[in-house]
Amino acid sequence: MWRTAIVLMCAVLAGCAAGNRYNYRDHAVSLPIRAEGQRILVLTVEDLRPYVLNGDKPANFVGLQRGGFGNPFDVTTASGQSLTQDMKASISNSLRNAGYTVIANPTEPDMSQLKQVAAQNDASRIVWLKVKDWKSDIYVSIGLSYDLHLAVYNAQGILLAENTQQGDSTVGGGKLSASQNSEHMAQEFSKRIGYLFNSPSIRDAL
């Protein structure tokens, strides 16, 4: 009797909170820039989230979904790939839609290697996004802590412009389904990346 009750309670508490996956990869980013003429960029996204670097969370971790009594469950990427891979795919597609030719750096970012990739592909700019934090926490409302740093370098590795977006706040109300939460978070990501790119110095550098 008690065992059944405990199993039922666990099922209720887990509810729709367990095993959620969010799709950042296929969401278009709203970018305020358009390429003038042929522009080739090297794009890299680096994961600097401390809880990933110390092994506490996997690289495909994107945040928490809480069950009935606030009990947390990890949310991961829908693709199964790392969050930074998904972010890179999303930003690459959006930059291509904006008229750029994008070389997505497939390896861990390293400036000397990035300069080589730029030289091999005749790229004029290196775009480097550092993800120091990106973690949603969804219960009745949606909390988001984020710390993003975008830098644009020329092909020789000289810094031309940089911009940051950071905060820790409620960004909406929790949705009725995981797919709606996924859509909300992808829109939030799109907006934050758009803000990063809309700095006058970044726009001028690109």
Binding site: S30, L31, P32, R34, S141, V171, G172, G173, K175, L176, Q187, S190, K191, G194, N198
Partner: peptide, 22 residues
């Protein structure tokens, strides 16, 4: 339950402001 409103740049469709009531 909720309304999300965005202001967008008419030329680029870029989201310049976002509001939410839940």
């Amino acid at each position: 339950l909720e309304i999300n409103i965005q202001f967008r740049n008419p030329q680029t469709d870029y989201v310049i402001s976002n509001g939410n009531s839940y």
